[in-house]
């Protein structure tokens, strides 16, 4: 419905929009919310988008019952280690991936419904001192983990039944990988950012580390969110959670940087800043839109191609937003 409403404005490009509350999920039984995500779920031949909510000790699956009304289908209890985040698996059906740990991720589990046993269950995919994890299309999960001596970067091919079908080791860079991003339009390419402020590129099929490209010294601690390959260039959306406020821009929220993988050179394409006087926290990117929770508790949304903040949702009476 929302897509249809937006279509008439598309020929002129997106305009300033306000955010509208569509529906609420009320869970009286769980403690504070840790994360929220969506998952495709197929039941009785019908594939629909469902919502997953996470608290520290449980994940709940919600189905739409009627407009503005959601019902809880099932709750997985994970009491031994706290839940840190839900790891989205794009285009994957009937699988929820979750990262658990104390301060850092210590294990990754899959939550699923088993038609064989007609029961909901969870299975362990990976343990270790995990620094970054990303879910890719076609049930692939890539993570970086660290021991005192070395860093391991690994891709796990997940099975429909919650196991791991295959594992591919990727060549690790010297610096710790801080984030991964799938490359739209190139199934076998993966990019990552490192603690040394570089962008690295892998070939997922062979595990080769193809290129390491420095982001530049102006902005430290870059985190990659999305990457797009076009016309021989690699466009990477970066955020800089620790960027200081500058006179020219204010506080930086996202940057789109074009890399030429052949030469390793880069150029800034567009940047998006926080509204004046605001400070930001974690952000995320979907297609050409970026969103971030501000320290005020509001949510801001940007059109990354125009470098414009298009909407801001102030904190509600119940408190701050999470993203």
């Amino acid at each position: 419905d929302v897509a249809e409403q937006l279509t008439p404005v598309l020929p002129d490009g997106p305009r300033d929009e306000s955010l509208q509350l569509v529906s609420e999920l009320k869970d009286c039984s769980c403690s504070g919310a840790v994360d929220v995500s969506t998952v495709w779920w197929e039941a009785a031949g019908c594939r629909e988008l469902r919502v997953v909510t996470a608290s520290e000790s449980a994940l709940s699956l919600w189905e739409p019952l009627a407009p503005d009304c959601w019902g809880k289908v099932y709750t997985w209890h994970l009491r031994e280690i706290p839940v840190i985040q839900i790891v989205p698996l794009p285009d994957t059906c009937n699988l929820v991936c979750v990262a658990l740990g104390e301060l850092e991720i210590g294990e990754i589990r899959l939550l699923l419904y088993s038609s064989e046993t007609d029961s909901f269950k969870h299975s362990l995919v990976k343990t270790g001192n995990i620094k970054a994890v990303v879910g890719l299309k076609d049930r692939r999960l890539v993570s970086s983990s660290r021991t005192v001596q070395e860093q391991q970067v690994e891709m796990v091919l997940l099975s429909e039944t919650g196991g791991s079908k295959d594992r591919q080791t990727l060549m690790p860079p010297e610096e710790t990988v801080t984030a991964f991003a799938e490359v739209e339009g190139m199934r076998e390419a993966l990019v990552g950012t490192t603690a040394g402020n570089s962008v690295v590129v892998w070939n997922l099929k062979t595990g080769q580390l193809l290129r390491k490209m420095h982001v530049g010294y102006s902005y430290s601690a870059s985190i990659c969110h999305r990457a797009y390959s076009d016309s021989g260039l690699l466009f990477v959306v970066l955020s800089h959670p620790h960027a200081k406020e500058s006179e020219s821009c204010g506080s930086l929220a996202f940057r789109v940087v074009a890399f030429n993988p052949s030469t390793g050179r880069s150029a800034g394409v567009m940047f998006s800043c926080l509204p004046p006087g605001r400070a930001g926290r974690r952000g995320d990117v979907w297609d050409t839109a970026g969103a971030a929770v501000l320290t005020s508790g509001a949510v801001a949304v940007w059109d990354l191609l125009r470098g414009r903040c298009t909407a801001e949702l102030p904190p509600g009476p119940a408190g701050r937003w999470a993203l």
Binding site: N203, Q208, L233
Partner: peptide
Amino acid sequence: CSESALGPISLNWFEELSAEAPP
């Protein structure tokens, strides 16, 4: 961004880098 700033662009960069990179 201009092509000169980024150097020569190759549409086949992925295949070319895969052929050059250590296995």
